[in-house]
Design a protein around this nucleic acid. Structure first.
Lengths: 204, 204
DNA sequence: GGAAAAACATACTCAGTAGTCTGTTTTGGA
DNA sequence: TCCAAAACAGACTACTGAGTATGTTTTTCC
């Protein structure tokens, strides 16, 4: 499942996420990423077969970051609203922590397939990314569904509801900029506000 | 304000929005857009000085589409919650109508500046786009602020609240695909569900 | 200490693409 | 009817950026 990644590979992923974030996944070149590492292409192409694979690796890591963070606060014995709030908080905080990765997700989540049929291999990676993302949102869908069933949440179209929910929780990706002082407290404010909004949007 | 656009120019914008949406704003080439029109580069470069200008024009039009649609349902004499719900519905329906344009917005809204310093001229266009977008969200911020003041809405950080709100209302951009049958009724369901969620997320 | 493999660097190729320049057609008035 | 000016088409340039191929250095492990 969670294949061990070498230190160098991890460092490359961090740099790639940063470049993809600031320049855009398409505009950022391999040379840009290499330069930001103080290295050259060779290093990157030694660890990743193509740019698409690198991009997919970043996305995969993003999905797993949040999955790990949220998975460990889930407790099905709790009421769905309580459980969901803990999940929401954990999600937001993790997004703020590993921000560049999640910005990349957003960029490649708009339905733009690019034009390259991207060599079957990457096609598989992309499918895996989608699968893990779907699996992740399923964690939330489950709780929402529970809440709807027992009447705590309003009975609305599940897909639409969950999609809107996830978007709310991901909204900092669009505007949050780290390093403005008051980090710790501000992050908690954001997490609390968004968790509140998310929960409120569900209630019957 | 709303400079008259020729029919040909408008046709180009539609095609550009579609290409930008399906291929991504960066990956889509001018030739792609021209080909989808059954034309060649010449036509596009006759009407638009650069690709960046074309992209900005698409974004500008997207902002104006929603602005027009929402602006005409605003009625400050109504209670903020009532008014805001009408606005939300109008926004969602308009987004679904002119979907390609708004998908482009999302693509270029992730904070990725690209790398091209983009010739001062485009810098100005981009600034104008941001300005009109800000002006548009201000319409919503005003109502939210009103609601908070009179206690109908929960007192939360305004910026965060509005950002989350807009994201919820824009969520169809991520998953909606036209032409699956049941258009009319489904669109209304989406608009109603999202408007409900948005409003619920604000309530005290 | 020495060989093999991993971990890079460097110098290329080559396809795709923004933008230009020069024709050619079409349109709108006088 | 004629002539600008607008509205395109088509060929060309210059450059960027992904990927490759081959060298060079550093580990690793026996």
């Amino acid at each position: 499942m969670l294949e061990q990644i070498s230190a160098s590979k991890s460092e490359i992923l961090d740099a790639a996420a940063l470049c993809f974030m600031t320049l855009g996944a398409n505009a950022a070149s391999i040379d840009d990423i290499a330069a930001s590492l103080g290295s050259t292409k060779g290093r990157i192409y030694h660890h990743f077969p193509s740019k698409g694979a690198l991009l997919a690796a970043v996305q995969l890591r993003a999905a797993r970051f949040t999955y790990e963070a949220v998975h460990e606060v889930i407790d099905d014995s709790l009421a769905p609203e309580i459980c969901l709030r803990r999940m929401a908080r954990a999600h937001v905080l993790e997004v703020l922590r590993s921000l560049p990765y999640h910005k990349v997700i957003l960029q490649t989540f708009t339905g733009a397939r690019g034009k390259t049929p991207s060599k079957a291999a990457e096609q598989g990676l992309l499918a895996q990314v989608r699968a893990e993302q779907r699996q992740y949102t399923e964690l939330f869908a489950t709780q929402v569904s529970r809440g709807m069933a027992q009447g705590t949440f309003a009975g609305r179209t599940l897909r639409i509801t969950v999609a809107g929910l996830m978007l709310t929780l991901n909204s900092p990706v669009f505007w949050y900029q780290p390093g403005r002082g008051n980090e710790e407290s501000f992050r908690n404010t954001v997490a609390d506000d968004l968790a509140d909004m998310a929960l409120a949007s569900l209630r019957a």
